[in-house]
């Protein structure tokens, strides 16, 4: 409700500041997974806030604020990348995998259930218990950017496919397939990491 003596613009501005403050951890988390660097992530969040404040009069539906600000964050990131890659003369698209790659839905679970794993306990729980947050973050950060952002928005931020499609300006089908491929790659990376770091017991390791 608008407070007495407040104009509609003041009210919208107060709403926006409250929302940004409430979303700040999540915006920073997403910015950090995009930039993979804390200082760049802080700059990205600050640049996003400046744009949001400038564009605020154009906000039509307050209920879409979260999606709107994440969209501005992502667009700010991609335009910064384009400017940087134009300087480096390497196109961003050359680093992205093609969309026809197959996603293997249960890669890790199937791997943990191979016949050589003569395991009598809960091998999945054991595997998960040994993974550190740091290992997971490294695996997420190693994903190609077009898969990483979809995995972050779905699995960390909890957005629906439709919300992600709107945020990234992609068809829902593309979101669905990138999410499947991104998760599959993430599982493979976690398995490779577990093997390299010796996290798998002798029984779990292939001969």
């Amino acid at each position: 409700m608008q407070q007495r003596g407040m104009t509609a613009d003041d009210d919208l501005r107060s709403f926006c500041e409250r929302e940004i403050t409430a979303l700040l951890d999540r915006l920073f988390g997403t910015a950090l997974r995009l930039t993979r660097n804390r200082s760049d992530a802080e700059d990205l969040v600050a640049d996003t806030v400046v744009k949001v404040l400038d564009k605020l009069p154009g906000l039509r539906d307050r209920s879409c604020f979260a999606g709107w600000i994440f969209r501005i964050l992502y667009n700010t990131y991609t335009s910064q990348c384009r400017a940087r890659s134009a300087r480096r003369e390497d196109a961003l698209s050359s680093l992205q995998p093609a969309d026809d790659e197959e996603g293997d839905a249960f890669w890790l679970f199937d791997r943990l259930h191979q016949p050589f794993l003569l395991w009598w306990g809960d091998q999945e729980q054991l595997f998960l218990d040994q993974l550190l947050a740091e290992d997971l973050v490294k695996a997420i950060d190693a994903l190609p950017e077009n898969y990483r952002i979809v995995v972050v928005l779905a699995d960390i931020e909890g957005f629906s496919y439709q919300e992600i499609a709107t945020t990234l300006d992609l068809p829902v089908g593309t979101v669905r397939s990138r999410l499947a491929r991104g998760r599959s790659r993430l599982q493979k990376a976690l398995w490779d990491h577990a093997q390299a770091a010796g996290l798998l017991s002798a029984r779990q390791r292939p001969e």
């Binding site: 988390g29 997971l136 972050v152």
Partner: peptide
């Protein structure tokens, strides 16, 4: 397994902003 893996991913991705960023905003 998929559910537990996702909850690990979600927890790993959670961040808290620094006081420096809060004051900057």
């Amino acid at each position: 397994f998929e559910k537990r893996l996702r909850s690990h991913v979600k927890a790993a991705g959670k961040q808290e902003v620094s006081e420096r960023l809060k004051s900057r905003i």
